[in-house]
Design a protein around this nucleic acid. Structure first.
Lengths: 163, 163
DNA sequence: ATTTTTAAGTTAGTTTGCTAAGTAAATTGT
DNA sequence: ACAATTTACTTAGCAAACTAACTTAAAAAT
């Protein structure tokens, strides 16, 4: 990493010693999410897989044949997002969208060989990145972060904070 | 919160008992960030302040007169993003962009009275939301999450993971 | 059996962020 | 003092997400 990036890293870190008590955690979570996403994006780009597509591939590798709606729910995105992503993935030859059992409405999603083959290439990348990200954190700390993030999500839902 | 939301909450939580070891943390961080952002957005909307504008306001409340570039760095966003947000905020009468000291290049950003007045209304909202989010987590756990998130950001920068 | 309701997919338009490339002012080097 | 470089802002265009509203198929109710 060059001097420019060291500088960027330092800036983003210094940033967090500073003021703004009122929503420090929210911004910190957001920054971490951005850095994580960006990192994965950079690595996936070598395989011409976008970050958006990755989210669907990782679900499909575990369970093909879901409908678009079911996929939406599994992935945690809204349907129009899913729709757009899947159309693009179909155009790139990663998946097929098929009607089934005489039902002319539901579309079931299947991987192509090409899409399926990416699994063995991309999973190690994600695993390695994950490992790098939490390097230096103890098992205990990792568990607490996991539980803590879940708690935040749950708290906000329970408080009716999210629509 | 209605039944529909309970359902949504449960789905998002069940989601995290499931497979996908390879980047569970990354997705969890991302989901938490989305829920946090969404929650704040909903609350800010009552004041016609968008989430994007909030990020700048909170910095400006602590230090007016920064240039656009300096603001970008403080907020942690790229300059074009800053530019667009500030133009919109100027149009809404929240800030002014002014040349200074005979320098025809740098633009310094100042709050209008309207922008300044929002501070007392919005800061409590953010504080309250933050409190709700981490409800049930001990001081110790909060500290670990804070350190852990910082560590993730730092690790990824150090690994050259981010461009 | 027909109507009504619900569900799945789609389209349109918005928001928030990005990168890459352009322009013009200010600074530095000769 | 002038040329070259760097810096600050701007423009253009793209990506990933969203909400709201539409269409049509399937399921439920009368």
């Amino acid at each position: 990493m060059g001097r420019r990036d060291d500088h960027a890293a330092q800036r983003i870190l210094e940033h967090w010693q500073s003021e703004f008590p009122e929503d420090r955690l929210a911004h910190l979570v957001r920054d971490a999410a951005r850095v994580l996403a960006k990192s994965l994006q950079v690595r996936l780009a070598e395989y011409s897989v976008s970050f958006g597509h990755w989210s669907f591939l990782r679900v499909l590798w575990y369970s093909e044949g879901l409908t678009q709606r079911e996929l939406s729910e599994q992935v945690g995105l809204m349907e129009p997002t899913t729709f757009t992503a899947l159309k693009a993935m179909e155009a790139k030859g990663l998946i097929e969208r098929r009607h089934q059992d005489g039902n002319r409405k539901n579309l079931h999603i299947y991987l192509t060989d090409k899409g399926r083959a990416l699994k063995d290439e991309l999973i190690p990348i994600a695993e390695e990145l994950n490992e790098v990200a939490v390097r230096g954190l103890s098992e205990e700390e990792r568990r607490i972060m996991h539980r803590g993030l879940l708690a935040i999500i749950q708290n906000l839902f329970e408080a009716g904070a999210v629509s």
